[in-house]
Write a protein that binds this DNA or RNA. Sequence first.
DNA 1: AGAATAGGTGACCAAATGGTCACATGTCAA
DNA 2: TTGACATGTGACCATTTGGTCACCTATTCT
Lengths: 105, 105
Amino acid sequence: MIDDVFRALADPTRRRLLDELFEEDGQTLSALEQRLPMSRFGVAKHLKVLEGAGLVTTRRRGREKLHFLNPVPIREVHDRWVSKYAEPWAAALTGLKRDLEEEER
Amino acid sequence: MIDDVFRALADPTRRRLLDELFEEDGQTLSALEQRLPMSRFGVAKHLKVLEGAGLVTTRRRGREKLHFLNPVPIREVHDRWVSKYAEPWAAALTGLKRDLEEEER
DNA sequence: AGAATAGGTGACCAAATGGTCACATGTCAA
DNA sequence: TTGACATGTGACCATTTGGTCACCTATTCT
């Protein structure tokens, strides 16, 4: 689950797609394709990965497929993972302290 | 730069390594190897990736190499990227609103 | 000095990934 | 209905990635 999210975020093209949707939500495949230096098929594949990770949700409107940003998984990554490492500077200082103590021996 | 960080975080083994260092900072390669179901070489490769991304810093002590967690890059990912998507629920609601409006037509 | 220990290097392999294309399906509009 | 448009599918290919191994260097201990 969370693994899919990290995997999806690893590719710069996919983060770019999230950026595009952040600027304008609900874009179609064709619209996104025109903004990226890549064929439609490449974009479609990346969107599929993003959708599989839950980072993008879709809705069909006739022959079009609209893509929407879903902030929930990123929120989860933040709450359950990033904050663990990014927030506790105290822990880092503890490590540094133990580090220096060790050096004294 | 930030790309290396995302790449590094994409692999579960590497996140596991960060977890191990989070529990006990400054471990050697051999110590980490024993905690993972993988050969020393595999672990060494992953550590190299983490080091390349700046997520882990090292210091030599004799023939040993100590590995320390560096929270700075994760902090940057959080500040410059994650918060952009995770925080603005307002934006998500705006998108939803526009969404519904579009549906009415 | 000699043996054991900690780590590094480069080759190598299987699998996953990123990207393209030919072709098929479904939908709109004249 | 005919043609144009939006998207989906599966094959295919080059590159990267994750992992192992044989072998080498450097350091410690006796």
